[in-house]
Design a protein around this nucleic acid. Structure first.
Lengths: 115, 115
DNA sequence: CTGTCGTACTACGACTGTCGGAGTAAATAT
DNA sequence: ATATTTACTCCGACAGTCGTAGTACGACAG
């Protein structure tokens, strides 16, 4: 099966992550598993990519983090919550996606187009 | 109007360019204008991006270049022709696009989905 | 009681495609 | 005469992703 390369998904990791924060805060490991599940194993985000996206988006004010210190066994977990600015960013990026899709498909074979 | 950012189109410049070489060889300036026209001014590829894509794709064997020395006034123009490997690469990339589109749209609001 | 697997990250350096800016030079339009 | 269009080329910078490694705790198998 074809795999999704990083160049191709680049620029969409942000919205993929934010989508999963729209309803509830979540954390890295959980998000990572959800991406895998929701995409039916077609996209498995790299840990480093995911965590660096969190850092970047927090710096940009799109998410806020808080730590849950009370996990069983004294373990910690860092949650991220989407901010209003993050929601707006998500919305804008979705619109950009629609536009990009339209443009790219003019240059794509398939969907009834001959090569 | 929203603009298409480089991160978002990254990874698709190759197929956009190859698409325009499918039927006939062409050259940088012409391709650049065609992208602009076909996308209805929604995507204007940067010169540096375009020419470095040519160089990269030639190195990878997806295109071949030849120079037309006989332009009026002794000017030169470098044409690029798609190779069989380039056609195959284009085909594969198009399939990858279909898959990527499917995946991304699971994380996108709009198209009847609520946010 | 030892080792592997799953959870939940962090750090660091490398790579690649894109970008910004500058420059070149001839042809055509004003 | 000057500006614009055509047709590139070179250079250094940047940002996001990746590969590799490491940490640390708990649960479960052998």
């Amino acid at each position: 099966m074809a795999e999704i390369s990083s160049d191709v998904i680049r620029g969409y990791n942000d919205i993929i992550i934010l989508y999963l924060l729209l309803n509830d805060p979540s954390y890295g490991y959980e998000i990572s598993k959800q991406i895998r599940t929701l995409s039916e194993d077609k996209y498995i985000i790299k840990e480093t990519t995911l965590y660096s996206a969190f850092t970047r988006m927090e710096k940009n004010g799109f998410v806020e983090s808080f730590v849950d210190e009370d996990l069983a066994g004294g373990k910690k977990r860092t949650y991220y919550r989407i901010t209003p600015a993050g929601r707006e960013y998500y919305r804008v990026k979705c619109e950009e996606w629609m536009l990009t899709k339209e443009v790219i498909e003019k240059f794509i074979a398939g969907e009834g187009r001959a090569v």
